[in-house]
Amino acid sequence: MRVGTPGFVPERLSEIRAARRILSMTELARMLGVNPAAVSRWENGIHAPDVDALSDLARELRVRREYFLRPMHVSDHPMFSRSYASALKRDTSYQGSQMQWLQEISSTLQHYVDFPEVDIPNVMKGLTYKQLRDEDIEGIAQDLRAHWNLGQGPCLNVLEVLERIGIVVGSIEMGTSKLDGLCSWSQGEERPHILLASDKMSLPRRQMDAAHELGHAVLHRGVTEAELKADLKEIERQAFRFASAFLMPATTYVYEVKHYSLAGLLSLKEKWRVSVKAQIRRLKDLDVIPDHHATQLHKSYSARGWQKEEPMDREWPIPEPSLLRDALNLIVDSGTRTKAQLLAEEFTMHPADIENLSCLPSGWFNKGEASIVQLTLKAGPQKNADQSMPGEIIPFSKR
């Protein structure tokens, strides 16, 4: 029989432990100064913490007490994570918790703001991921480019495309180079959510990561957790093939490659905003260059030290997601809710966590709303028409 605070949700304790990178219940117990068995009983749903223990949990883990009483946003869809095999469990668990929070923030804001409708047509045409051939993936990338009116040239801002077609995107620093992007469809509204790592970032890397996660959203929506575990390598390969086809269409990109050298590919990087490394892989996949030529290019690539950073990587600004940030600003600026009301009534997470996932400036919730001051022109002598200066109307651009 459970005792303690009624309505305590044990899964919330697991989630916040992952979000704070606390690997074990014993570690959390040490932080709280309680017996590890008590934390184990709380997290396993055997007992619930009493009021004082709940307050201690909230204070130590930097959330409101109500956080532990609010139902979880649980999706039946798996999370497609681009993590290296050497990634630590605490890092991968952290990434998963941030995706859950991203979906929770998104769901909350949609009570007030109409997000763009999801515009991802059914391009699979009854195929499962197991039936996909490379030519199918190439065709799907082409069909989506046509559907979204992207043409056949470079797509210079994949992030903008994702948000325009209704995908919610977050970008945070993962604190490790072992984690990349993450994609998952939310439950209920069936909207894709993508979480991108900002570590070791450049524009070409951001482009490829975003296109890769788009590939998961398009190709792997029906994949089960068991299938993901069993066929992870093939599922990841398909997503990369989609991303390459989406960023470098076979109908145009390959015809611009005049010199199959690092210098030649570097010149194309400036136009297509795709890394030299990704271009080598693309030319090899399309059988434009043989395997031995690709191997030689990779050796020269490594010899120049480009594995860590390629030329031009720092020349372009890195786009950031804007959908959640704009939604929060709209809610506050319109007077629908104040920042204090959002924190007291809608969110149970720490303000810094919301700012981080929504790409808001640090301390946004602490800044007071600006009061609007109405100004009027001073009364005074009017100038003659021939003395007045001609005016020019400058139109505002649409956001």
Score class of each variant (00 low, 15 high):
residue 12 R to I: 01
residue 23 L to R: 14
residue 24 S to P: 12
residue 29 A to Q: 00
residue 48 A to I: 01
residue 53 A to H: 09
residue 56 D to W: 04
residue 60 E to W: 01
residue 63 V to N: 01
residue 69 L to E: 07
residue 75 S to R: 06
residue 82 R to Q: 10
residue 87 A to R: 06
residue 89 K to H: 12
residue 103 Q to D: 10
residue 109 L to A: 06
residue 115 F to C: 05
residue 120 I to T: 00
residue 126 G to K: 03
residue 126 G to T: 03
residue 129 Y to C: 02
residue 137 I to S: 04
residue 142 Q to H: 13
residue 143 D to S: 10
residue 156 L to H: 14
residue 171 S to W: 09
residue 188 G to K: 01
residue 191 R to S: 01
residue 194 I to F: 13
residue 197 A to Y: 03
residue 198 S to K: 07
residue 199 D to I: 00
residue 201 M to S: 11
residue 206 R to N: 12
residue 206 R to P: 07
residue 208 M to Y: 13
residue 229 K to F: 11
residue 232 L to H: 14
residue 234 E to H: 09
residue 245 A to E: 11
residue 258 K to F: 13
residue 266 L to E: 15
residue 271 K to M: 09
residue 272 W to Q: 08
residue 278 A to V: 01
residue 278 A to R: 14
residue 282 R to H: 12
residue 289 I to Y: 12
residue 289 I to M: 04
residue 291 D to Q: 13
residue 298 H to C: 12
residue 299 K to P: 05
residue 315 E to N: 12
residue 321 P to Q: 05
residue 321 P to F: 02
residue 331 I to T: 07
residue 343 L to A: 08
residue 351 P to M: 04
residue 358 S to K: 02
residue 360 L to E: 09
residue 364 W to R: 02
residue 377 L to S: 15
residue 384 N to A: 15
residue 385 A to D: 15
residue 385 A to N: 15
residue 386 D to V: 06
residue 387 Q to V: 02
residue 396 F to R: 12
residue 397 S to L: 06
residue 398 K to R: 10
residue 399 R to G: 09
residue 399 R to M: 10
